[in-house]
Design a protein around this nucleic acid. Structure first.
Lengths: 144, 144
DNA sequence: ACTATTTAGTTGCATCATTCAACTATTGGA
DNA sequence: TCCAATAGTTGAATGATGCAACTAAATAGT
């Protein structure tokens, strides 16, 4: 009998390894992949991206450098505050983000399809509850 | 309205960041943490650990080196096959693995406690279904 | 208005994890 | 017995990251 703790650990680690392996088959690092997906929500400045991804601003600068070199993102100076650098997706970046998203969808669909159809609605509802609960928890986190 | 895909991505990434931050507050790397927890299941040889963690044997050798230096694991030669190196936890390693596991438990408990009590049984059942489904999917994976 | 302080982002340096490939030791088969 | 395959280790190169110093821009205090 496995506990819920082992289930969460196992599921999340496996999903992470799916992400890594889907991505490594292509040409982006996992961190770049997350960044591209974040930017589909719109324009962000470097600090916001860094704290969202939980890395330093220096690391984020370099992640952006990498995507900029491939013409997937552009930097623009903030209008009201010239210190700010706003990062946004180029058309090519949008396309790449969509490609990555489709791969992720495919992974998740494969997993869900292995769950008996009668259980799927409750599983889907549960995932939404879990996401919401984790988000509430995360905003409080501030260790390290 | 958010789709199930976004829910899985958000939840799994958040859990990963919980893991990283709990661990980084201590003194082990995420990979070492997984390794310690794997070894609580018993003795493994280096190749099995490497393929389980999805890294090369070289990387696994060094992860083991790191834990061995802290007296958390020991290497013993295989009896029937002297090429094999069997890795197992020391008492101190067992203690550390338990400590890490408790931290993980605490994180997960915090998340579950934010879910309405009436939904918890279905969420717990769903997590088990998801884990099982993901495990079936993973064993087929062999890209890269 | 002038200066000092704070904030945003970038860059150099050091560190660590990882992969690849070469190497050693051991095993098993022709 | 010798050769190929296997298990693990090690060196070199790469890449991601944190920290701290730095530049540029905005803001507060006088």
């Amino acid at each position: 009998m496995s506990s819920v703790v082992e289930d969460v650990i196992a599921f999340c680690r496996m999903f992470s390894s799916f992400e890594r392996e889907e991505i490594c088959c292509g040409t982006v690092s996992p961190a770049q992949c997350v960044l591209l997906q974040t930017l589909t929500e719109g324009e962000w400045d470097v600090s916001a991206l860094a704290s969202h991804a939980r890395v330093t601003k220096g690391a984020m600068t370099r992640l952006i450098d990498g995507l900029e070199k491939r013409d997937w993102v552009t930097r623009t100076k903030g209008e009201d505050d010239a210190r700010r650098v706003l990062v946004s997706l180029t058309p090519a970046g949008t396309k790449e983000a969509k490609r990555l998203h489709r791969l992720t969808e495919r992974s998740i669909a494969t997993i869900l399809n292995r769950i008996p159809e009668s259980n799927r609605p409750e599983v889907i509802r549960s995932l939404n509850l879990l996401r919401t609960a984790a988000e509430q928890t995360r905003t409080q986190l501030d260790c390290c």
